[in-house]
Design a protein around this nucleic acid. Structure first.
Lengths: 222, 222
DNA sequence: CCGTGTGAAATCGTTCACAGCC
DNA sequence: GGCTGTGAACGATTTCACACGG
């Protein structure tokens, strides 16, 4: 069997704080910028400074998953990028469907950068029959009633939900029934999903409210 | 002058966890749904169950800011909505400018629901002169070189940044120089801002990576 | 030396359990 | 009876400090 160069320490899922995973994404993004600018190695303190974290935090986060650093040297950027992608599961391509081709949905269909990160949007769906069977940014838009058929047939794994709040739970239920196992929900409503489906909610108004609070209270952000 | 019915306890800024503010937004959203469906009071355990939190959590979060509940009754929805809006600072209208009229920028300009939450987008800016002086969803698009003038003149307080990553820091610097004191950054890059400016970053790829991780680390049988 | 990895200590956030009130 | 508000217990995460490796 393929002998990995590095062992990925037992992920032991319940044991890794969600916040660590968030930071891993940020490390990855920063490392990819650094690579593009020609940097080949970086220390935990440099990486931390770029993102506003301490060096100890960076090291602790990484050692949750294995030994990626080189004492006296730091981390090799390329190596660490590969390791983090493996940890996040983005060293392969995920198939994604988008539900709700409104303003936000169209924007996400056109968003460059999902592809490079390992996410390929392979289908879109909309309730409105007039939107169906169009092609937006080379992604086919289907009517909702073909959801089950197409999700199953194209082996779609993840969903992005950009339908109105009133329709979001129904759409989520259908997508899950058809086999989707992870959802990013942009509708401003709390979805309930079975335990074996992963869910992240992104509410644009909520993000503004965080800013409103900290400005109103003259807080220092982050 | 209006003497507040409830004293807002000293926010004591460093003492309120950021996570509390996030949950407050969710409580608010849920309460507004409940109000619309005719509910007038709710207990901490009911509200918690709707959102996946414990009753103690809900109460602790709220008592950071004052005494809003009624023993034996629960919380009156309308009262609590007003209290949370006051805490978040959304009991008044914030003026917002959007920078970068690409796919995502246009989607945000058309997003209904900012208005109802107390955020009014009053201007947009784009580098491309061909986009300037258009009107999208009744919001005027200006060329970037009028940024300072217009932000100052329209007293714009908050910024949403939807320009490409390579331009985001420059745009943030200009917006801050012109008087903006809070930023929601959608560009996939880490911005650095002065301490007295609030910053929240929203990276769409990062959200998908959270899902990827949790799906990839689930025990998939079969 | 510099820089990682890591137990131990400190800090922070959540849950418990109960006093007090309607 | 039902429910809030809250100190105290608990659990989790972050920071510290140092042993060890290049």
């Amino acid at each position: 069997m393929g002998s990995g160069k590095h062992k990925l320490a037992p992920p032991d899922p319940g044991e890794v704080p969600k916040a660590v995973i968030n930071r891993l994404s940020l490390y990855l993004r920063e490392l990819q910028h650094l690579l593009r600018s020609g940097k080949t190695t970086i220390s935990s303190s440099q990486l931390g400074r770029l993102l506003g974290f301490t060096d100890a935090q960076v090291r602790k986060d990484l050692t949750c998953f294995g030994h990626f650093g080189h004492p006296g040297i730091g981390y090799r950027c390329e190596e660490l990028v590969a390791a983090i992608r493996r940890i996040l599961g983005t060293d392969r391509v995920w198939t994604v469907a988008l539900f709700g081709v409104g303003n936000l949905g169209r924007a996400l269909l056109g968003y460059k950068g999902f592809g490079a990160k390992g996410f390929q949007i392979v289908a879109a769906f909309d309730q409105d029959p007039r939107k169906a069977d169009a092609t937006i940014d080379s992604i086919r838009v289907h009517p909702m009633d073909r959801l089950e058929e197409i999700v199953a047939h194209q082996q779609i794994q993840l969903a992005m939900i950009t339908v109105p709040a009133s329709a979001a739970q129904k759409v989520a239920d259908l997508a899950i029934a058809a086999g989707v196992c992870g959802i990013v929900n942009f509708a401003p409503v709390t979805l309930s999903v079975p335990e074996d489906v992963s869910l992240v909610g992104v509410d644009l108004a909520t993000e503004l409210e965080q800013i409103s609070f900290s400005v109103a209270n003259r807080l220092i952000s982050r």
